[in-house]
Design a binder for these strands. Structure first.
Lengths: 198, 198
DNA sequence: TTTTGCATTGACAATTTTGTCAAACATAAA
DNA sequence: TTTATGTTTGACAAAATTGTCAATGCAAAA
């Protein structure tokens, strides 16, 4: 076998760089040249490894999707009480968001333009179990009564929106970068307090 | 004055079409040809009226910004009690969102790429007054105690996220279009109940 | 009717971006 | 060292996108 130590590295490097440009910097229509420059490689290597620009995009998109999926499945599979489960997911999410704040927006713009989603199958049963848990907490009076789906919408909204829309919110509310960071650092506690009755 | 009845109409038509393509359909990198085709006009008319593609984008962006701004100022200026104020804003927002579900995402992707925001000046005092109102309701015990900015974050998150991220959420939660619409129609009441103690 | 001023058009040029290819390169195996 | 195999490169071609321009059209004013 002929394997240089940089062999798969270049391919990975290009992928990582593309992910950074898309999900990290939000430059969704970066050219292959820009990606190559950022990766410090020859542009045609993108064609060599990924055949075409579209293929690279496709692969990176699927990677992002998988990443999100895994994060969701992780939380759904643990056996912690609901509040702790959500608490932990908030940690995971905020951690990932530091690296890829534009991940979700990218996925929306792509999902929109006719991009097939995968692996929705396993999610079904997991979600149903999750909904049941939520309903149980409602019965116990720990959270407001509503459709479980609404509770999930509330949760992901409170969690994601301030991250994905940061540039817009920060500007329109005239907040400094530092103050916004402060707000974000308090977010976890705020979200839990907003969703759960004391 | 020589004014054909279609004179300013063409310019407006192009703008409206661009707005629909960007904010309505979310096709953020539509070409001038695609916009012209959708508007049913010759492509070069875009250059004639807007000089360049970038200028058209700029104008449409500022228009979107103004639209959002006006919606925000409207709510801040009325003298209704907080809960009614937010309630009314939710109506306005959901109404506008039907036409332009991708408006906010577009603004984020632009804000990101170095786009100057305007008219932040008047917002300052209005926001401060709003924060005071919120603090007052907290003192009265009607809403959970937190920084007013956090309350505002909560509000816009719960309001905007399910709209702007719809393609992503609907897919990943495996919901039908019809069911998602049902959820959205219940949203207003859910949000108010989530933000205010009973 | 003729003129005037703007609107519209198609052909063309310029630019940007992407994709191909043969040649050069590097490294492990023979 | 030579060979074989996969990697990297620059030059080139192809495609896509944008911008310019002169010519034409059209309606109101002279």
């Amino acid at each position: 076998m002929l394997v240089k130590e940089t062999d798969q590295d270049t391919e990975k490097l290009i992928m990582e760089t593309a992910k950074n440009i898309f999900f990290g910097e939000g430059r969704f229509n970066a050219t292959t040249q820009e990606i190559a420059d950022a990766a410090g490689v020859n542009r045609t290597l993108i064609n060599y490894y990924f055949r075409s620009r579209d293929k690279l995009f496709e692969i990176v998109f699927e990677d992002a999707q998988r990443q999100e999926q895994e994060l969701s499945e992780q939380i759904l599979n643990t056996n912690l009480p609901l509040k702790e489960k959500l608490s932990q997911h908030l940690d995971n999410f905020f951690e990932q968001s530091k690296k890829y704040p534009y991940l979700e927006i990218y996925m929306v713009t792509q999902a929109n333009q006719g991009c097939a989603f995968k692996d929705k199958d396993k999610m079904g049963p997991l979600l149903d179990k999750f909904y049941l848990e939520i309903a149980l907490e409602m019965d116990k009076g720990n959270i407001e009564k509503m459709r479980p789906e609404q509770f999930v919408l509330n949760f992901i909204s409170l969690m994601s929106f301030p991250i994905s829309m940061r540039p817009l919110i920060q500007e329109s509310m005239s907040l400094t970068k530092e103050y916004y960071d402060t707000l974000l650092s308090e977010r976890k506690e705020i979200i839990i307090r907003t969703l759960f009755k004391q």
